[in-house]
């Protein structure tokens, strides 16, 4: 239990660092003149907005959830059991595991940069790769979830 609590605290620190970095980066990109809507297509604008603010909101939701988990021992135990559940971990690993997640996040960030720099060809290529990866991950997850249901 103590190890899991430590893990949660570490994740919270990681989220806080990510949030601060995102705010800092927002100013930097503004200063550098990135995200110029005159050169961006509507899909690029939509993607960059959804990716940035979606990620920001998601991280805040995660932070609040972890805070709630830390405050309530029953919730901590419930979250720990759910997260450490071997069937769930097997399904997660079979659908790509942490490596697939890292790839998806990396491609999403690269696509965001491509959108902000208005490099159309790179952006559309990365967007297709990202969609294929997300669909592949979701599909395999759903398949194994049904298989081991």
């Amino acid at each position: 239990m103590k190890r899991y609590l430590k893990q949660i605290r570490m994740r919270m620190v990681g989220i806080l660092i990510a949030l601060i970095s995102m705010i800092f980066f927002m100013f930097i990109s503004g200063e550098l003149g990135w995200g110029d809507s005159r050169y961006m297509t509507s899909l690029m604008r939509t993607y960059s907005g959804i990716a940035f603010f979606g990620c920001f909101i998601y991280l805040i939701v995660c932070l609040r959830r972890y805070k709630r988990i830390l405050q309530n021992q029953f919730l901590t135990e419930e979250a720990r059991v759910k997260e450490m559940d071997e069937r769930r971990r097997l399904i997660y690993d079979k659908s790509g595991g942490i490596l697939a997640d890292l790839w998806i996040v990396s491609v999403a960030i690269a696509a965001w940069f491509a959108a902000m720099l208005a490099t159309t060809e790179i952006f559309y290529t990365l967007l297709v790769i990202l969609l294929v990866m997300v669909c592949g991950k979701a599909g395999t997850f759903w398949y194994y979830e049904k298989k081991y249901e």
């Binding site: 450490m84 559940d85 071997e86 069937r87 769930r88």
Partner: peptide, 10 residues
């Protein structure tokens, strides 16, 4: 046993 109901069902 420290697992979830879904795992026991499976």
């Amino acid at each position: 046993v420290g697992t979830t109901r879904q795992t026991i069902t499976s």
